[in-house]
Structure formats: C-alpha cells, structure tokens
Simulated scan of single mutants.
Amino acid sequence: MPSQIDYLNPSNAPPAQGLYSHATRVSGGSLLFVAGQLAVGTNGDVVGKGDFEAQFHQVFKNLAVVLQGIGGDFRSVVKFTTYLVHSQDIDRFMALRAALFPGLFPNRLYPPNTLLIVDRLVKEDFLLEVEAVVGSG
C-alpha cells in the first residue's frame, strides 16, 4: 500500500546545504521528519564561523522557521537528534539548551534528544546540526 510522500521546503527557510528537503510528510501518518538544520543564513552563508553560541542560536532559529513553515512549532517536536563536531562543546550545548528550552517548551516537558559526536558536518565551518521528528494533526 503506497503512501503519499510530500517533501516540504518552507519559502522563508535558509537554502538547503545539499540534496535534501527541509521536511517530509507521509500522508496518512502523523509524523514529519525535519532535516538537520545548520547555522545557515537566508543568503546561504555560514553564520557564526568558529562561534558555537552563534551557531547554536542560528540552528534553533532555522528550526523555528521550518517548523512554522510546516504548520508546527517546538511543542510539536517528538524527538531531536543533535550532532556536534567537538566533544568539548557538550557542556556549552547543555548550558545553551538549558537557557533556551524553557521558553520553547513552557510546560517544561522536553522531547527526547540523541546527542552524537561526529567527525565533521557537510561543511567544515559547521559546529552543530539538529534534526527533529515532529507530530502533526
């Protein structure tokens, strides 16, 4: 039984950094899969080269844009997967997330997150990437 698969690219999201769409919706299902978001500005340039905090904020800004573009928000997130390039950034990531998440998740219920350390991302200037699974309808 084939499903209808819709690939979604909200018009105000930054350009993809490879051959992928920002999100996928499977008709008849209730989950959307949001591609890993990077520190990319609307012009396609890397934001915050060498600055983990600037990249963190840009990644979550981009996630917000994509979530809004597909009719959701952070409260729709079922699960995050986070990729860091340097294990030394784990504590900084946790601190930035602890400061940001209470505003994104007012009920203080946070989705699961898998944290991985990888050799590099699609461009060497990127320090982190965050993808999401989102519930719809």
Rank of each mutant, 00 (worst) to 15 (best):
S3T: 03
Q4C: 04
D6Y: 06
Y7E: 08
N9Q: 09
S11Y: 06
S11R: 14
S11K: 14
A16E: 12
Y20E: 09
S21L: 02
S21I: 00
H22Q: 11
A23T: 02
A23M: 06
A23C: 06
T24Y: 05
T24L: 14
T24R: 14
T24G: 02
R25M: 08
V26G: 03
V26P: 01
V26Q: 11
S27R: 13
G28M: 08
G28S: 11
G28I: 07
G29P: 04
G29A: 14
S30Q: 14
L31V: 06
F33P: 01
F33N: 09
A35Q: 15
G36R: 03
G36Y: 07
G36W: 00
G41K: 05
T42L: 15
N43H: 06
N43M: 09
G44Q: 09
G44E: 08
D45Q: 11
V46C: 05
G48Q: 12
G50S: 05
D51L: 00
D51V: 02
D51H: 10
F52N: 10
E53M: 01
Q55R: 08
Q55P: 00
F56E: 08
Q58F: 02
Q58W: 03
F60N: 11
K61A: 12
A64W: 09
V66L: 11
V66G: 03
L67P: 02
L67E: 03
L67K: 03
L67M: 13
L67C: 09
Q68K: 14
G69H: 06
I70K: 07
I70C: 10
I70D: 04
G71H: 10
V78L: 06
K79D: 04
K79W: 07
Y83S: 08
Y83F: 13
V85K: 14
H86S: 07
H86D: 11
S87I: 13
S87D: 15
S87W: 10
F93A: 05
F93G: 01
M94W: 01
A95D: 14
A95P: 01
R97N: 13
A98Y: 01
A98V: 01
A99E: 15
L100G: 00
L100K: 08
F101Y: 12
F101S: 02
P102Y: 06
P102V: 03
P102H: 11
L104F: 04
F105P: 01
P106D: 11
P106W: 08
R108L: 10
Y110H: 03
P111N: 13
P111F: 15
N113S: 11
N113W: 04
N113K: 10
L115M: 09
L116N: 14
V118K: 08
R120K: 15
L121F: 07
L121W: 07
L121R: 06
V122H: 04
V122S: 08
E124I: 03
E124K: 10
E124G: 00
F126C: 00
L128C: 04
E131C: 14
A132K: 08
V133G: 02
S136G: 05
